[in-house]
Design a protein around this nucleic acid. Structure first.
Length: 792
DNA sequence: CGAGTACTAGTTTTT
DNA sequence: CTAGTACTCG
């Protein structure tokens, strides 16, 4: 390749396998790295960047690396610092959104984007509010046109690089026609508020570069070496942005030094407009691109890798890969079937505590993954009850708290006086006797007069109709703002927050001595602590940076403490609770994936559609491949949704895809009176696809032995010396446990037979047979290991 | 006019 | 169950 480094080994190239090394040494021209899970892609990217800095006379800021989350960016930067030292700080590493945001702030004024450089970034909630406002103005019924549905279409249009006019041209349903009209108004409102939504950050940067070739040129010459991680999750807007940068346009050709890292099996964001076709397009748009395959997995045992492969192999549209690991064998995968979500959570907590008590794992070695955020609830309850320390990653609950949003609204208004949405939020918080009527009256007036609300507020006395009381209230609010605005210019950020809290009376409102007030006050202090990181920066810049950070860093990057929900800033020895989506890119020694049920994983919204089902399958694949040594897949027979009614759940089809030879079934039946037949069926080696290596001959590694012993209280698991029957699942918990709380006279429910009364309980060696007299169906004898019986 | 209370309807994943 | 809206009371 370009470098003669073969002759002397050095720290940057050492320890790389041949394809990794090829990827690192391919510096010039387009490069596509197809990297399986755990194949060391972050290592490749960081080493490649270090290599570029050394081999080419370029400055750190000439290197761009785009990651999917801020967390990934931070990790990459940390690793780079270890490789190249303090220079790492000048590298451009960040998400599409953060990088674009910075470009826009720098260029906004000069490029006539109808966006001031102090623009606000509107998060999900803000965007929804804006859609609602547009709907109201247009007299459209929110019931008929659900704001979220409209917003989804708008967002999709933006991801496809369509402005309102272009989108209007290609609508083909009435609903979309309405959406197009709302989109137009929504855009006007954004600009009026001097605000950009998430999608705008990409869209507007693209627009800027497209319409201003000299600006594009500037960034092409700045970002000489481009890296894009998680390339398969790139949407059209993001792809076109990168293409413009790297390939350029006829008048401003690019330098073509782009390195895209992708795994089509881990494409899980199509609902956000991501389109794995970009992988094919890449090869078209960048002819002659080098392709490197990273197929050696350094993370997981063979057992886990086999399970993952078997699950994902059912997808039709994928490049086949040949992942392998030299970590042969390993512990079998535990599949656990619990009665309901409560017992599922209980099992998880128990299992973790047992492992920790025996010393081979720490709490921090575990992650529990789920499809939807709502599933964390049952887990959290059990974790709290059992005193198991945990953190929750992802759900940005902290930044969604009212008190946090309120304080942020004040700050946003100070940074951007045109942010009417924020103004409306806090004008009466705490209560200043400015109700919706007064507010509407005032807003209508400022609009009529064609003045910005904040400006109109200064002359509120001139308002024709408002009562003296209302005017006085508004004038008082204005006085507070004026004071805070001057404070914003000179005070360091934490001091500014203090001033806001005092001057607005918000502090007094919260610190009312109630427990709830205390908690909210603590949260506000938490926010203030985050702001302290910005103390050293010039006040106005600090404010803008802080708000940008909060807007863009609030998602999967935030970790909350269990129990109190505080933000977690330092690593804790605690179990991680995380969605499957947020888990991408991470790894844990032991992983639980909960809720493997039809309707949960795969999610009910995806059941109809083959394409979406494939994505769910990839989601399961992502989860499985996060595990290094131990993997648990759990499900519940019965799950309750929104509070009330519980529903019988069928086992996820993904469980069927895992060859029984890789699995140990474990059951907990304290209240379960039966299991589904398919769960009970003996494993059939014939179901094993030929591509799967039979693990029976591979002796368990020593470390595998210890952890397996830990994981299973009953040591009846086949050992290396008796590999002949490792496939026969035996109940981990003896079945009679179930019959404990079942006696003649008990009322029971059966899915098919309905309500009945237990007549007789026969506990055999391997099974328990119960005679039940059903109201409708009459007398039946049921084998508890097959029948789905529930205590009424 | 504003605040508190009864009802309804909606629930994937995230920058 | 919760958020968000519609209605009633002070």
């Amino acid at each position: 390749m370009t470098s003669p480094a073969d002759t002397h080994s050095d720290d940057i190239l050492q320890g790389l396998n041949p394809p990794q090394r090829r990827a690192v040494e391919t510096i010039e021209g387009p490069l596509l790295i197809l990297a399986g899970p755990g194949s060391g892609k972050t290592r490749v990217i960081t080493h490649r960047i270090a290599h570029i800095l050394r081999e080419r006379r370029v400055m750190p800021w000439n290197v761009l690396a785009v990651t999917f989350t801020n967390k990934a960016a931070r990790e990459m930067k940390d690793r780079l610092e270890g490789l190249v030292g303090p220079d790492a700080r000048d590298l451009n590493v960040g998400t599409f959104h953060s990088i674009c945001s910075r470009v826009l702030r720098r260029e906004a004024e000069s490029a006539g984007l109808a966006l001031g450089s102090n623009f606000a970034i509107y998060d999900d909630g803000d965007q929804l509010n804006l859609v609602k406002q547009a709907l109201r103005e247009m007299n459209l019924d929110e019931k008929q046109y659900r704001p979220q549905a409209i917003h989804a279409l708008i967002s999709r249009a933006k991801n496809d690089l369509l402005n309102p006019m272009q989108y209007a041209e290609r609508v083909n349903k009435y609903f979309e026609e309405v959406a197009a009209r709302v989109y137009r108004r929504y855009e006007e409102l954004l600009r009026q508020n001097n605000a950009a939504d998430f999608d705008d950050l990409i869209l507007l940067t693209h627009q800027l570069w497209r319409t201003h070739p000299h600006v594009l040129r500037k960034y092409q010459d700045r970002y000489l070496y481009i890296h894009v991680d998680e390339f398969q999750d790139t949407n059209k807007a993001q792809y076109e942005l990168v293409r413009m940068l790297a390939a350029g346009t006829p008048e401003t050709p690019g330098h073509l030094n782009i390195c895209a890292v992708a795994d089509d099996d881990q494409s899980i964001y199509s609902w956000r407009g991501a389109n794995p076709r970009v992988l094919i397009q890449f090869e078209t748009d960048f002819p002659g691109a080098q392709i490197v395959l990273l197929e050696q997995n350094y993370r997981s045992t063979q057992m886990i890798l086999d399970a993952a492969q078997n699950v994902v192999q059912h997808n039709r549209l994928r490049r086949d890969k040949h992942l392998w690991t030299d970590k042969s064998g390993g512990d079998k995968i535990t599949i656990h079937e619990a009665y309901n979500e409560e017992e599922e959570a209980n099992f998880v907590a128990d299992e973790i505590r047992t492992h920790v008590a025996r010393g081979a794992f720490q709490y921090r070695d575990f992650a529990v993954m789920y499809r939807t955020n709502a599933q964390s609830r049952a887990l959290e309850e059990q974790f709290i009850r059992s005193g198991t320390p945990y953190v929750v990653v992802g759900s940005k609950k902290f930044y969604e708290r009212k008190e946090i949003k309120d304080v942020l609204a004040y700050l946003r208004l100070l940074a951007n006086t045109r942010d009417t949405l924020s103004l409306q939020r806090i004008i009466n918080v705490p209560n200043r006797k400015i109700g919706p009527k007064t507010l509407a009256e005032f807003m209508a007036w400022s609009q009529r007069e064609n003045r910005e609300p904040l400006d109109a507020l200064a002359t509120i006395d001139a308002h024709p109709t408002l009562s003296t009381g209302s005017k006085r209230a508004l004038a008082a609010f204005h006085a507070i703002l004026v004071d805070l605005q001057s404070a914003a210019k000179e005070l360091p950020l934490p001091a500014l927050i203090d001033r806001v809290l005092e001057r607005t009376g918000y502090a007094a409102e919260l610190r009312d001595g109630t427990e709830e007030g205390d908690e909210r006050w603590t949260n506000v202090l938490e926010l203030r602590r985050v702001a302290e990181d910005f103390s050293e920066i010039e006040p106005q810049t600090a404010l803008a940076l802080f708000l940008e950070n909060v807007a863009l860093v609030s998602g999967a990057d935030t970790t909350q403490n269990g129990e109190n929900g505080d933000l977690v800033t330092e690593e804790r020895n605690a179990v991680t609770l995380i969605t499957l989506h947020a888990a991408k890119g991470l790894e844990y020694p032991a992983v639980f994936i909960v809720g493997l049920e039809e309707g949960v994983l795969p999610h009910s919204r995806s059941l109809e559609n083959e394409t979406e089902l494939e994505e769910e399958r990839r989601l399961a694949y992502v989860g499985i491949t996060r595990a290094m040594r131990r993997l648990y897949l759990t499900r519940a027979f019965k799950r309750s949704f929104y509070g009330g009614s519980s529903v019988y759940q069928e086992a996820s089809r993904f469980l069927e895809d895992i060859p029984p030879a890789l699995v140990i079934n474990s059951r907990q039946r304290s209240r379960t009176l039966g299991t589904s037949p398919d769960a009970e069926r003996p494993s059939q080696p014939s179901r094993l696809p030929s591509s799967v290596r039979a693990p029976s001959h591979s002796p368990f590694s020593r470390q595998g032995d210890t952890s397996r012993a830990l994981s299973h209280p009953s040591p009846r698991v086949a050992t290396a010396s008796t590999p002949a029957q490792p496939d026969v699942p035996e109940p981990a918990t003896p079945v009679p446990a179930a019959a404990d709380n079942l006696r003649p006279g008990d009322r029971v429910m059966h899915r098919l037979f309905g309500e009945g009364t237990v007549l007789k309980v026969d506990e055999g060696r391997n099974s328990t047979v119960v005679d039940v007299l059903f109201k409708q169906a009459g007398k039946k004898s049921l084998d508890l290991s097959f029948a789905r019986l529930e205590k009424a």
